[in-house]
Every structure is written in C-alpha cells, then in structure tokens.
Amino acid sequence: MATVTSWVETLNAGETVIYPFVGTEWLWLIIAIAFWIVWHVRSSASETEENDELASKGKGSDDYKSNIANW
C-alpha cells in the first residue's frame, strides 16, 4: 500500500516519511544483513576455490607474460 496517495493530504497532515512500507524497516534490515553475511561466506569460498586451482598449476613468476593480450 502506498504511503503517499495524495501529496496535498500528506503535506497538509505534516507527514514527512514518504518511502513505501513504513514500519517494515526491521524486515528490510534483516534481509540486508543476511545478504551481507552470505556475500562474505560465498565470496570467501569462491576465492579459496580459485586460489587452489591456480596454485595447482604451478606457474612461474614470468609465465603471465605469455598471456598479455593486445586488446
């Protein structure tokens, strides 16, 4: 349900909070924190996987030079 359905009524009433779903901020906060924590867990796991795969290649310190692209 829209917080504002008439600007005239909202402003005349002195209402200042105009974003949708006022009162559900706690729910959005929980979702946002969960997303943030999941991001750390998933990205860390992905990084470990990538590092392990690269480490297993046993490349030397100058091997990257053969991969320098011209574009």
Binding site: L54, A55, S56, K57, G58, K59, N67, I68, A69
Partner: peptide, 18 residues
C-alpha cells in the same frame, strides 16, 4: 598461497583473455 603470489593473482583472467 605462495604459488598464487608467484603466478600473479590475475593469472586466470589473463589466460582466459589471451
């Protein structure tokens, strides 16, 4: 890991781009 530091963190990206 030491092996990654020697190879370079971007090795896989660079290899794929090449």
């Amino acid at each position: 890991p030491k092996e990654v530091e020697i190879a370079g963190l971007d090795f896989n990206y660079m290899e794929a781009a090449k």
